[in-house]
């Protein structure tokens, strides 16, 4: 990134001699972080963009493959499908969990939250391999089901899309819970009592009052989980067993194994654009600042 772009906020600051705007000091404090981000984050992304239109030849040839290559389309289709399924399941589980936490006593809430957040401190790698041990043909789940006589042959639970979804859902549930819990905590419990007092059954009070009031959290969690899922690499790589390719692994394959930098960079760019577009669309629907912890 050209250095003069970085100087923009500072250049806008001094207006009448010493009379700096009140925020100028804060902007100056942000400058080092801004520079660092430009160098280690924005610059490489721009470089990727550049590679995608220059390798192997200059032009939009790589992007043409989006429409012509069945292989590329299959990867995109698989990725979208797995991400959508993961998002829906993580939202359902996360909603139920957030609901229980939101209605628990303050003491119980702390324990629930600890339980929800605990997996976040365990490495993705460890969790993925743990799922492999549980789900493989001789794993605990298959042995258990066979022991109970429910199945004769072990089920294919891992090294396919099912395994990937299990691992991804497990990873994403805490991220689904947090925004929804935040939204639910803002719901005045008296509204539910009011609904009951005015003649609504528990179910109706939930459907007509709680659900609509928690909807912003649901949407926010959906966006968050979906975007996170798009970039998943380790979990699908391990639980997919190399047979089901998602975008991130496909990019790695293109660049490291096939040395087709242009193709890898093209899909990477597509993913980034997809994420930014999703954010742009949903920033009009929900308050993103609130979703990511800013504001109040």
């Amino acid at each position: 990134m050209p250095p003069d772009a970085v100087a923009l906020p500072a250049a806008a600051a001094p207006r009448a001699g010493w009379a700096l705007p009140r925020d100028a000091g804060w902007w100056a404090l942000l400058l080092p972080a801004f520079l660092l981000m430009s160098v280690i984050y924005v610059a490489p992304i721009l470089q990727v963009l550049a590679i995608s239109v220059t390798e192997p030849t200059t032009g939009l040839g790589n992007y043409e493959r989006l429409f012509t290559s069945i292989g590329v389309q299959r990867v995109i289709g698989t990725t979208l499908r797995i991400c959508a399924v993961t998002t829906v399941i993580a939202l359902l589980l996360g909603y139920a969990l957030a609901y229980v936490v939101a209605l628990a006593s303050p003491r119980a809430q702390r324990w629930w939250l600890l339980g929800v957040l605990l997996p976040l401190w365990i490495s993705v790698l460890v969790r993925a391999f743990a799922w492999v041990t549980l789900l493989r043909r001789q794993g605990l789940v298959n042995q258990g089901l066979q022991g109970l006589g429910l199945i004769d042959e072990p089920l294919a639970l891992v090294w396919n899309e099912f395994g990937i979804v299990v691992g991804m859902v497990h990873y994403m549930v805490p991220y689904a819970v947090l925004p929804m819990l935040a939204a639910m905590r803002e719901i005045d419990p008296r509204l539910l009592a009011a609904a009951r007092g005015l003649g609504a059954s528990r179910l109706m009070a939930f459907a007509r009052v709680f659900l609509p009031l928690s909807a912003p959290g649901l949407v926010a969690a959906g966006v968050l989980v979906f975007i996170f899922s798009l970039g998943f690499y380790i979990t699908p790589a391990i639980l997919g067993g190399g047979k089901t390719l998602m975008a991130a692994e496909w990019i790695k394959l293109q660049i490291l194994d096939l040395v087709r930098w242009g193709m890898g960079a093209m899909l990477a760019t597509v993913v980034v654009v997809a994420i930014l577009t999703t954010l742009a669309v949903f920033s009009r629907v929900v308050n993103l600042r609130r979703l990511f912890g800013g504001g109040h």
């Binding site: 005045d188 008296r190 509204l191 009592a193 009031l213």
Partner: peptide, 9 residues
């Protein structure tokens, strides 16, 4: 209710 508890949505 105390504080009315009107449904904000």
């Amino acid at each position: 209710f105390q504080g009315y508890a009107l449904f904000p949505h």
